[in-house]
Design a protein around this nucleic acid. Structure first.
Length: 549
RNA sequence: GCCCUCGUAGCUCAGUGGAUAGAGCACUGCUCUCCGGAAGCAGGUGUCGCAGGUUCGAAUCCUGCCGAGGGCGCCA
């Protein structure tokens, strides 16, 4: 019996109690909370239902809990139901019912954990979107890992997700980049407000290799822009790909200007109630969406401001049929939330189709001291540097494991020294260990047991492992609902722990010449289920589930 | 000044209103003849930044304060 099924059982039992006592059944929530108590003495599961609705019914929670416990105790699936504390009902599942969780995982395999919550929803997930004026750095790596994982989690709930990267390749940033390249090509120092760093010299040289007379040409800047920016695009795409993050669409801001989309949009917006003319410029009423002030969309000189591109881009996304546009941005862009919402409103669209996730910064730390990173000075730590030190799996895992709401401190020295201590190895090891058992079982010709033997799994550690496995679908759903992929990582750590503890006290395969028993088969089935869930969870993170390590 | 996020063990961080607040790392001791020891068990540290409030119940929600980071251009 899965937690979801148990919740239904509890609700049904409660409904029965309320009806029998002629109490108001409308106070019963649709979703009854059934959770795993911290303290195992409090049972396998517990429900706080009596506490939730007791007051509204005018019944003492403990009394209500007593009625509920009596009703639940009637179920074949439930071994015991007891009142506890202020009005909890602590439940213990019958071993056979609990074994049903294992059977379900074996049945669903790679599909276990998926849901239909977002079926039919087309989501545009934009993340990273770092300026193509340099390599992807540490912060970008965080969004690459977390964004990709979020995409996978949303897909696991049935969403149709398009991963998108927005290249800001129009405007002054690129001009500075080009100027920096040309200065490097001429052997001149980095210009004021230009970009430093070794890669500038490398890209400049690459441009000269492709176009040896680039500096002499009249359209030198254009040549450097074409080739240099192109090389940078390739570099960004390549490093993200190597990081296990692939995008469906790389969108170029420049294309919005070239196609005239921005110009058309600007004209159209003048008719919007959310735009007004003042002091010679056109303003967006972003204040109504929480902004500090309204923002200029069309400048006094008639040229579109940067934000016009954002609005055109959003319009483009919607025109492509997306129901929801998620933007993952760094904390330095939190001011965009109101603007993007206002932009949707200005287009006559629903601001709820814009969802902005703000992630906090990644700091580089050394010996407990923060290391200042400057893109301009070229002292940033690149995503690749991190990968070189710890590998893709550990790098991704480190980035995903924490909530994006919290800023993250990365101590590279520590990572370099202790790669084996990254929790990802703990999780991967559990998977590798399970694969080893599966290999041995196959050699011995032992097969996993069928449904009827799963009730033999009555050991405390078996129960804990089974119940942890049972939590997975709920974790995936919460992870998707809250846009918090780190929950998957934390869950996997608890699953790996439950498995290692099980392994420590429950021998799976027969020792020496002992024959395989029904329990052997049942434990093997449990192992197979655990292996599926570890693999499914790691897949959601884009982290490998190795068979050997 | 205003806005956003954070403040939990020595460190890095979990904890979408529940019972005695957790994990990894670091420290110490133990378990183990055979399924992978990259494991398990035990030991111990907490004014959950501070102060109020809401609630049967608050690390979690609300208000104020303190501290850290970030943001507040007709730049992009």
């Amino acid at each position: 019996m899965t937690p979801a099924a148990l919740a239904t059982t509890v609700r049904d039992a409660a409904l029965e109690v309320l009806r029998a006592r002629e109490l108001d059944e409308s106070v019963l929530p649709e979703q009854v909370v059934v959770e795993r108590p911290r303290n195992p003495e409090h049972g396998d599961y517990a429900t706080n239902l009596a506490l939730q609705i007791g007051k509204r019914l005018g019944v003492a929670p403990r009394e209500l809990a007593g009625w509920l416990a009596d009703a639940l105790a009637q179920s074949d699936s439930i071994d015991s139901a007891e009142i506890a504390g202020p009005g909890f009902v602590n439940l213990r599942l019958a071993a056979d019912a609990q074994g049903g969780i294992v059977a379900k995982v074996l049945e669903e395999g790679a599909g276990y954990g998926q849901g239909e919550q977002l079926a039919g929803t087309r989501i545009n997930l934009e993340f990273v979107s770092a300026n193509p004026t340099g390599p992807v750095h540490l912060g970008g790596a965080r969004w690459a890992a977390a964004g990709d994982a979020l995409g996978r989690v949303l897909e696991a709930q049935g969403a149709d997700v398009t991963r998108e990267y927005y290249f800001n390749d129009a405007g002054a940033q690129i001009d500075r980049f080009v100027n920096s390249l040309m200065a490097a090509a001429k052997g001149e120092p980095t210009p004021e407000d230009g970009y430093g760093g070794a890669y500038i010299g490398e890209v400049a040289n690459a441009v000269l290799t492709q176009q040896p007379d680039a500096l002499e040409r009249e359209d030198a800047a254009e040549v450097f822009r074409q080739i240099g920016v192109g090389l940078m695009f390739d570099e960004v795409k390549r490093s993200l790909h190597e990081f296990g993050t692939d995008f469906d669409v790389f969108f170029h801001e420049d294309s919005l200007h070239q196609s005239g989309a921005v110009g058309e949009l600007v004209e159209r917006l003048k008719n919007s109630d959310n735009l007004y003319f003042s002091d010679g410029a056109w303003w967006l009423r972003s204040k109504e969406f929480g902004d500090d002030k309204d923002r200029v969309v069309i400048k006094t000189d008639g040229a579109p401001a940067y934000i016009a591109g954002d609005i055109a881009y959003f319009a483009d996304k919607r025109a492509r049929g997306f129901d929801l546009c998620i933007y993952m941005l760094g904390a330095d862009h939190h001011g965009y939330i109101a603007r993007l919402k206002a932009a949707a409103a200005a287009l006559g669209d629903d601001p709820a189709t814009v969802e902005v996730l703000i992630g906090q910064m990644v700091n580089l730390v050394s010996n407990g001291e923060p290391v200042r990173m400057s893109k301009r000075a070229g002292t940033v730590l690149r995503m690749e540097d991190l990968v070189d030190v710890v590998g893709v799996d550990a790098a991704r895992y480190s980035m995903i494991r924490s909530s994006i709401d919290a800023s993250l401190d990365i101590d590279l020295d520590l990572y370099a020294k202790r790669t084996n201590e990254n929790p990802v190895f703990y999780v991967q090891y559990a998977h590798a260990r399970l694969c080893s058992i599966a290999r041995n079982a196959e050699d011995l010709g032992i097969a996993a047991a069928g449904r009827s033997e799963l009730g033999l799994l009555t050991h405390e550690r078996e129960g804990e492992l089974i119940r942890t496995i049972g939590e997975f679908p709920g974790v995936v759903k919460a992870s998707a609902d809250l846009r918090e992929p780190h929950r998957i990582a934390r869950y996997l750590e608890s699953l790996a722990a439950a498995y290692h503890r099980f392994y420590d006290s429950c021998r799976v395969l027969p020792m020496g010449d002992e024959p395989a028993t029904e329990l052997t088969g049942a434990r093997l089935a449990l192992c197979t289920a655990a292996r599926h869930v570890l693999a499914n969870g790691l897949r959601l993170l884009g982290v490998a589930a190795p068979e050997r390590m």
